[in-house]
Write a protein that binds this DNA or RNA. Sequence first.
DNA 1: TTGACATGCAACCAAATGGTTGCATATTGA
DNA 2: TCAATATGCAACCATTTGGTTGCATGTCAA
Lengths: 104, 104
Amino acid sequence: MDAVFRALADKSRRQLLDRLHNENGRTLGELCAGLAMSRQAVAKHLAILEAANLVAVRRAGREKLHFLNPVPISDIADRWIGKFERGRLKALGDLKRNLEGKEP
Amino acid sequence: MDAVFRALADKSRRQLLDRLHNENGRTLGELCAGLAMSRQAVAKHLAILEAANLVAVRRAGREKLHFLNPVPISDIADRWIGKFERGRLKALGDLKRNLEGKEP
DNA sequence: TTGACATGCAACCAAATGGTTGCATATTGA
DNA sequence: TCAATATGCAACCATTTGGTTGCATGTCAA
């Protein structure tokens, strides 16, 4: 879980996930194209995403195909965001009242 | 949005949000209690959460009350996670097929 | 076989991060 | 007033992070 949050903290890695979301099963070389970054930098990012289980990999000869795994993101939504979502309207009301200086 | 993801990347900061979720409107001193960390470290974390708009603040005399703001988390769920959630089942099926080496 | 291509590994570097300590400021209450 | 309390600010430090370069390995295709 911590690895997932840390992996998502970087804009480049979120962009890589976006690209995989659009076209799944890309090779490292394909993912590098047009990213103002060296191939090795992209490889490191993908390794971090892979360690966080956000990206799964299949070797095909000399190529390495990368696939988006949406499960950890789903887990965030379910286990962590859901907790705050449930109380969202209540919290918003409390927040407004509290910032105005009254007690709820 | 980037600030929100980066703020959420740290376990201590997520714990602070959890504590505010349980008991909203805590002072800095209260939030420090029992956290193996100096007051200044906690203050820095709260500043980061405040900059990301995840925490709102009200001064009350010499105390500073901290309130959870669930909106940015909700925004993540809506704008970013939702994108992956929608295709979750399809992506999972594709993932399984692709890792098995067949084409979809 | 052999050259071109795709990826892997390692050393290195600058900047950001998370933490500390020390001191300053502001508010409360006796 | 004045001491205790609550927070703010700044300098400093170690580690992590995101990036680079250089070279090694593995695979395809002519």
